[in-house]
């Protein structure tokens, strides 16, 4: 198999394209700042070298003109950069849906050591380490982790977000055309970390429907035993060795994801007490949106 695409400067989707544009924009602007210093530094050091005969003013130490220039220059550049930063950051909030047409495909993603589980709640199926989706349509992802903190990333499609135990993060992506892309966890989580990769496969609409049908009938049925096996610390390859658990499942319960987010097994009364119920999160799965401080997300979401 050819190596899947992994370079965001050669993007395959809406978000990554915007990121590439923004990347080169900043590189260009920073070039205006860095370039002169790279040229001036050796130039000044040479021009005013000890053995030269340039002007020497040992006591000169201030000039309002220079002062205005050296404060003003960076302030202007940073102001311009800040404008672009604000615009770009709010436009590409990974938690917000993309401004593209088409019925969104919902996938719920659970991070394990060292594999990813992709749940298709509208179709009752799930896959391991393979995210299959149709090209051109928005891909709405919800993420959590059943182990330590992980970071979910498909570079050619867009940015990464953390997946954290007991919390839901969101990510919105889309692919422009069919293709096979590399995805991975980027947050170190032990000795299987470097093998925690998956394939993101964008299919034409018809092929995606066909895949849904095949998987719903041919895949192995989901069971608690399967869930326990996935939750063990192993890569997909280690997990399936000498075992026919497989990497695709049917008959996946609709509340699997919300059950994983809210640890009902540990704490039957979690709805009334736990922070996990503290937020008012409208959506198929209840549970707070992840925020930096661990508090419930702001209601504006």
């Amino acid at each position: 198999m050819d190596s899947p695409d992994v370079n965001f400067l050669d993007p395959e989707g809406y978000v990554a394209q915007q990121q590439r544009v923004h990347f080169w924009r900043i590189v260009a602007l920073m070039g205006l700042v860095v370039g002169p210093i790279l040229v001036l530094t050796p130039l000044i050091a040479y021009r005013y070298r000890f053995s030269g005969n340039s002007t020497y003013t040992p006591d000169w130490h201030f000039s309002w003109i220079w002062e205005a220039a050296i404060w003003g220059g960076p302030i202007v550049i940073v102001t311009i950069l800040s404008y672009f930063l604000w615009q770009n950051t709010t436009a590409l909030d990974p938690f917000e849906p993309l401004p593209i047409d088409g019925e969104p495909v919902r996938v719920q993603i659970v991070g394990y050591d060292w594999k990813w589980l992709f749940i298709y709640p509208d179709h009752g199926i799930a896959t391991l380490d393979e995210l299959v989706f149709p090209e051109g349509r928005p891909l709405n992802l919800e993420l959590t982790s059943e182990t330590v903190m992980q970071s979910f990333h498909i570079p050619v499609l867009g940015g990464q977000v953390y997946a954290m135990e007991g919390m839901i993060s969101k990510l919105h992506l889309a692919a422009d055309r069919p293709g096979v892309f590399r995805g991975r966890n980027t947050q170190y989580n032990g000795h299987g970390f470097h093998r925690q990769q998956f394939v993101a496969r964008a299919l034409p609409e018809t092929a995606f429907s066909a895949w849904l049908d095949t998987t719903s009938t041919d895949a192995r049925p989901w069971s608690d035993a399967v869930h326990d096996r996935i939750a063990e610390r192993s890569t997909l390859q280690e997990m399936t060795e000498g075992d026919d658990t497989g990497a695709a499942f049917r008959d996946v319960p609709g509340d699997l994801f919300s059950g994983i987010v809210g640890p009902m097994d540990r704490d039957p009364d979690w709805r009334s007490r736990d922070r996990r119920d503290a937020s008012v999160e409208a959506g198929p799965a209840d549970g707070p949106v992840a925020t930096a401080t661990g508090q419930a997300a702001d209601p504006a979401r």
Binding site: I70, P74, L85, T90, L92, V161, S169, T291
Partner: peptide, 28 residues
């Protein structure tokens, strides 16, 4: 990438770039 709002990220991003001003001044 931990999931705080875009506004919060933008504010901290801009604050970060502000460090570039006094640092740039020092270089000059």
């Amino acid at each position: 990438t931990m999931g705080q709002s875009a506004g919060m990220n933008a504010v901290f991003g801009i604050a970060t770039m502000l460090v570039g001003v006094p640092t740039g001044v020092k270089i000059y």
